[in-house]
Amino acid sequence: MIIRVRQVTAACALATALSACASPEAEAPRAARPAPAAASAAPSRPPTLAPGPAGLTPVFENGPRSSEKVVALTFDADMTADQGARATNGERFDNPRLIATLRALKVPATVFMTGRWAEEYPVQARGIGRDPLFEVANHSYSHHAFTGDCYGLPTLSEERMRGDVERAYDAFRKAGVPGAMPYFRFPGGCYDRAALKALTPAGVTAVQWDVVSGDAFATDADAVARQVLDGVRPGSVVVMHCTRSAAPATERAVRTIVPELRRQGYRFVKVSELIGAARAER
């Protein structure tokens, strides 16, 4: 998902030690895994929302506005199906330093990944998917639009929409990502009734947001951080990006956002926790 916003020039002076970023595929040591549950215990299913009116795909934008200060940072790992040549020529659609920063700061997060991104960076996709700090959700295979006139993205026909989503899940499995979540984010955030109807058989919950970070194409990390900090409320879902070429300031902004929100009493959660809380209130 790419959204252009006005840039504001400011300086950002922060320091951190991130030895896990030495190489694009490096991963920080993981915390010890919990002991396996008893063999007879059934695995829990990720929470989803019930279908909307007329059985349409449900849409989730934010969690309950309760007194509990929780916020979900989400990161779109974008790569359009026809961008392979650009990747071959050296353009980087990944951001391993951002993932390393989230690990170093111990921030749970939800990564909305395109199938094409998982194919291009299978080791990173697998590392994110197997890290209990993160959850992987679906951002389509091709990053093509599900409506017309969506930020210049090529448009999928209604007949191809469900197949595009399922193809992304296939790409995750081939990359070794276990248990991708039944959550879907529309490329560009663009959808209509026809798109919601087309995806009903896929059984996903569409996940939008209520806070736009403005990190797409931004170079001013301070401006991105301010926009997030000004917009966050209890239960917020923040949309950001995990693509170096299209969102180069995101990692620096995160190093400002996380400690400040923690200072304000916020706890970081994955989208699944917010959806579970929302479902419990209904």
Rank of each mutant, 00 (worst) to 15 (best):
I257S: 03
E68F: 07
G276H: 10
V177Y: 00
E273W: 02
A50C: 01
L274I: 08
Q124H: 03
V204S: 08
P34H: 12
E281R: 15
L18E: 12
A35Y: 03
R233P: 07
L56W: 03
H144V: 05
G90A: 09
E27R: 15
H143F: 10
T205C: 03
N138S: 08
A22C: 12
V271H: 04
E25G: 04
F75S: 01
E61Q: 12
S236R: 09
R92W: 02
P201Y: 07
E68Q: 15
A85Q: 12
E91S: 07
T250L: 08
F134L: 13
G84N: 10
S142P: 08
S40V: 11
G179T: 10
V204T: 10
D131W: 11
P51E: 07
A10D: 12
P36S: 08
V204Q: 09
E119N: 13
V71W: 11
G63L: 10
L261D: 04
G52L: 03
A77S: 14
V136W: 08
G203T: 04
C12G: 04
R97Y: 07
F75Y: 13
V177C: 01
D94G: 02
L98N: 06
T57N: 06
Y266R: 04
G214E: 10
A218S: 15
D94S: 10
N95I: 01
M240F: 03
G127F: 00
L49C: 02
E260M: 04
C150Y: 08
R97A: 11
K270E: 04
A104C: 10
A32T: 15
R130M: 06
Y169E: 04
C190S: 11
F134W: 14
P47S: 08
M1Q: 11
G188P: 05
T243F: 02
W117R: 06
R103L: 02
Q227S: 11
A195E: 03
D210L: 09
R233D: 08
P46I: 07
T74F: 06
K270P: 02
K174D: 00
A137D: 07
R162E: 15
R45M: 09
L105M: 14
V204M: 13
F93G: 03
R252G: 05
L199K: 03
L14D: 04
V212E: 15
N89Q: 15
M240R: 02
P259Q: 09
V107G: 01
G52R: 05
A31F: 14
A118F: 07
I3R: 14
V71I: 07
V258R: 07
P132M: 14
E281I: 06
D94Y: 02
K106C: 01
F186M: 05
A37Q: 12
A278T: 15
T80D: 05
A15G: 15
R193S: 13
A202V: 08
S67C: 07
G189C: 10
M79K: 11
R4N: 11
S67I: 10
R45F: 02
G84L: 05
A246T: 13
V8H: 08
A54S: 12
T101N: 03
F268P: 03
N138K: 13
A202E: 00
A17V: 13
Y169C: 00
L14C: 05
P108H: 09
A26S: 15
